[in-house]
């Protein structure tokens, strides 16, 4: 049984200073890998490399034993889905935004409205929100809607960059519970998350691994 998700000797440069970051880790099915470290340590860069949105100097990533280069970038990104710290909001309603990824060839017309409405409820959002102009949402609502979008897309790995940044403690806790349920609902799922918020420590029964990015060459 190959490891679920693993990155091996990933090496990359940070900024003009050219500091080299070397990092290896793996992730068990159904668990969360929390990446920590001071700003400028290269946490976001690592997530973007894992999603193949940036190229690294060295190293390889494996999903269920398969090398990342054996996938097309499109197929890889649909399985290893990166959500930016400030996710894009598209013109149109919340529904338009949730449907947006399903206009792409890779999962064309696989949108399921019932799942979307269930998701809104689970994230303690009013289901009437679905017809609201997405640009008029509050910061907290936007954060949850843009999190629901990749959830509906059903990737294997969610790469989350500071998902709690614009949420208060209560919303953060309910989002964390929501992510825990998402991990448990089906096999073949995992989360890699950059966060400064320790809220996950309050949730019982969640499988957490931590990875500290600090000085060059430590990991």
């Amino acid at each position: 049984m190959p490891e679920f998700f693993k990155f091996d000797q990933i090496e990359y440069h940070m900024g003009a200073a050219g500091r080299t970051v070397k990092v290896s880790s793996d992730l068990e099915e159904g668990s969360i890998l929390v990446i920590k470290g001071p700003s400028g340590a290269g946490k976001t860069t690592l997530l973007r490399i894992l999603a193949r949105l940036l190229e690294c100097d060295k190293g390889q990533v494996f999903l269920q034993g398969q090398n990342w280069l054996s996938f097309t970038p499109q197929l890889w990104r649909s399985k290893i889905n990166y959500l930016a710290q400030k996710p894009a909001v598209f013109n149109g309603t919340v529904l338009d935004n949730l449907k947006k990824p399903f206009a792409l060839k890779i999962k064309k017309d696989m949108f399921n409205l019932d799942e979307a409405i269930d998701g809104l409820r689970e994230l303690s959002l009013n289901e009437n929100l679905i017809h609201q102009d997405a640009r008029t949402l509050s910061g907290g609502e936007t954060a949850r809607i843009t999190l629901l979008r990749p959830i509906l897309f059903k990737p294997n790995i969610l790469l989350l960059d500071e998902p709690f940044a614009s949420l208060d403690d209560n919303s953060a806790r309910s989002v964390m519970e929501f992510l825990k349920r998402w991990l448990e609902n089906e096999t073949g799922r995992g989360i890699v998350m950059v966060t400064h918020n320790d809220i996950y420590k309050d949730i019982s029964g969640i499988k957490i691994q931590e990875l500290e990015l600090s000085e060059p060459g430590v990991n």
């Binding site: 949105l53 499109q74 890889w76 649909s78 990166y82 930016a84 598209f90 990749p150």
Partner: peptide, 13 residues
Amino acid sequence: ISEIEALLSFGAS
């Protein structure tokens, strides 16, 4: 750019 990257990360060509 952020919309484009969002689409790319959903597997857009």
